[in-house]
């Protein structure tokens, strides 16, 4: 978003020494956010494969988030400490990565108890009968899901 570069405009009008940023930067950010939102809705309609669509959607969301953090939350003009904290917010990514890596590297089976017809399952849901007669039987769907994964 290089067009958003603006001079910090050090308007030291009071003792707080707080930078007042021009309204135009906020307007441009808002415009960019709206454009990105339209793009994300539009991109979701184009078949890019599951991964492609996900990457595009999350990439756009991250861009939008970055814009909000940098301009609306003033991190761009903040102290390095604030920047450090903004980065620390990504700590949950290792949590996500490590946990998903676990599931990616082992055989993760559909829970057998999902199958209401399996007498070995621990607890069949009482109400499963009411929702069980969908187009495919639950068993078929469970198997289809497992096949789809591996």
């Amino acid at each position: 978003m290089s067009e958003l570069t603006l001079d910090p405009h050090n308007d030291s009008h009071d003792e707080h020494n707080h930078h007042v940023h021009p309204v135009s930067s906020y307007l441009k950010t808002l415009g960019a956010l709206f454009v990105l939102m339209v793009i994300t809705v539009w991109a979701a309609q184009i078949p890019l494969g599951s991964w492609g669509n996900n990457l595009v959607a999350m990439g756009i969301a991250t861009t939008k988030a970055t814009l909000v953090v940098l301009y609306f939350m003033h991190v761009r003009y903040g102290t390095s400490l604030v920047k450090l904290w903004a980065i620390l917010g990504f700590l949950w990514v290792p949590l996500l990565g490590f946990t998903l890596a676990d599931y990616a590297t082992r055989q993760y089976e559909m829970v057998p108890t999902w199958n209401a017809n399996d007498k070995g399952s621990a607890l069949a849901r009482d109400r499963s009968g009411t929702v069980g007669d969908s187009k495919k039987s639950m068993e078929e769907q469970t198997e289809a899901n497992v096949r789809g994964r591996f």
């Binding site: 939102m37 994300t40 979701a44 078949p47 890019l48 494969g49 669509n53 959607a57 969301a61």
Partner: peptide, 8 residues
């Protein structure tokens, strides 16, 4: 928004 409403 994309996670819930725009699942590919």
């Amino acid at each position: 928004f994309p996670l819930f409403y725009l699942i590919p």
